[in-house]
Every structure is written in structure tokens, then in C-alpha cells.
Simulated assay, not measured.
Amino acid sequence: MFAVGATVAAASDGGDGGGSSASGTSSRAPGRYSPDAGFARDMAVHHQQAVEMSFIVRDRTGDEPVRSLAYDIANTQANQRGMLLGWLDLWGLPKVIADEPPMSWMAAPDGGDGETGGHHEHGTGAAKPGALMPGMATKEELAALGAAEGRDAEVLYLQLMTDHHKGGVAMARGCARQCATPAERALAQGMVEAQQSELTLMADMLKQRGAAPRG
């Protein structure tokens, strides 16, 4: 996984310390509504819920494979969230924009500076009622996870995290295509690969428990 300091520095100077990146993209800070900034804001929120769910399940089961997976997800996504928020600080951009619809950056024009408002539809599928973004759990689902124990907690966590990863992979693919910052594109592509691997692992773990992903 990327070192936070080095990755934030690379996002500042395009990775080569000069005025442009190796791909020819200008190193000036991304715009307020750019894919780079929108992805950083949205994925930071998305990751925070994954960390929360992982800490919940660690207290609800003694199953070591599930606890180990939850630890890995919490640790990885907390570190990545720190990178995303660090980039926003580096770029002098807000971490929250009240009138920005979640995921609107995914429809922003490629190559634009993103200075205008990003009120567009996105192409990742609608979030379920009560969820902020595709793949995210509702308050009711989080409460159910907190009330479950043993196998029930394991199955619900694996199902919720499977949905969560699917939403996260769609977002990360969007940044890998649209973000202008090389370090951020690389981080997004790493998320795609890691979470796809974990999706396969979680499908196997659900099968071992006589269950399956939802939907």
C-alpha cells in the first residue's frame, strides 16, 4: 500500500517534482468540482462506513477469519481515507460541499477543470433508500449488524461489505478513468484490484457459512 506522505507529495507535484506529470497533466490543484476532488470527498465517506462496520463485527464474533478480514479492511481503508483527505487539504479544497450531490463527479466532463457545479447524474446505479451512495448500508442495517452475534453477524457483515465493495469498485473505476492526478488514479486502480480480490474471498466465506451475497 502507498505511503501516505509520499503519495500526498506526489499528488502535489505530479510525482516528478516539476510543473507537469509524466502523463502531461498540469500539476495545478484540481477544481472544486473536479473528478479528483469529488472522488476524494465521496470515497472518504464511503471508506468511513467500511471502517465502522469492520469494528462492529470484530466485537460481535470470535471467528478469526472474519475478524482478520475486518481488521485488514479497517486498516487499509482508514489509511486510504487519510490520503484522500490529505489531498483535499493540499489542494485547498473543502472536505464537504453541502449542495454537491454524491457521485456527481462521475459525470463531469473528462479533462475539464471542474470549477463549475457538478449537478449530474452518475452511472453506478441508484443508492437504496436510506443509503447515501451505492453500496452503502442504511442506519437500520448498521443497527442490525450491531445487534447480531456469531454466525448471524458474520453473514450480515459479509453481505453488507460485499455490497459496499461493489459500490466502491464502481467509484474507483470512475476515478481511474477520469481523475487527472496520477497518484490518485493509481490509488483508485489499486482499490479496484484489492476490493475485487476481497469480493471473491467474501463469496467463499459466505458459502462456507451456508449463505450467499444479496441481490
Rank of each mutant, 00 (worst) to 15 (best):
L158E: 02
S197W: 13
Q77E: 10
M171S: 08
P109M: 03
T138L: 01
S27D: 14
C179T: 02
F39G: 09
G86M: 05
A37W: 02
A131E: 10
G111W: 06
D59V: 08
D163R: 14
I56C: 02
D72T: 15
P101E: 07
R177K: 13
A172D: 01
D13A: 01
G82L: 15
L84P: 03
A127P: 13
M161I: 08
A50F: 10
E121V: 15
G38H: 09
L156S: 04
L199H: 01
H46G: 07
G146S: 09
A37N: 08
A172L: 04
R185C: 03
A74Y: 03
R209S: 07
T76Y: 02
M43R: 05
Y33N: 09
A131C: 11
E149A: 14
M136L: 12
L158C: 05
G18C: 06
P182F: 00
Q49A: 00
A127I: 11
T76F: 00
G210S: 04
R177G: 04
P129C: 05
R151C: 04
C179M: 08
M106Y: 04
A188H: 08
S23K: 07
P182N: 02
G130L: 05
R60I: 07
A127H: 05
V192W: 09
G38R: 03
G24E: 06
R173W: 07
P30K: 07
P213S: 05
D36S: 07
G118D: 15
C175W: 02
S68L: 15
S21A: 15
A144P: 00
A143C: 00
L199F: 06
G190L: 05
V57Q: 01
G150P: 09
G14L: 09
T7V: 09
A126K: 13
L84I: 05
L142W: 03
M171F: 11
Q189A: 13
A143I: 13
L145P: 02
G15S: 12
D16N: 14
Q49F: 03
R173H: 04
T200H: 13
Y33M: 06
L93C: 02
A153R: 03
A11F: 07
E115W: 08
G190Q: 14
G31S: 11
A180E: 08
E184N: 06
G125I: 07
A3M: 09
G86I: 03
W87R: 06
G24H: 04
G18T: 15
A74N: 01
E64P: 10
H122I: 10
E100V: 00
A172T: 05
V57K: 04
K166I: 15
R151E: 15
G31D: 08
A186S: 14
G150I: 06
E64C: 00
G19R: 12
Q48A: 14
S54E: 07
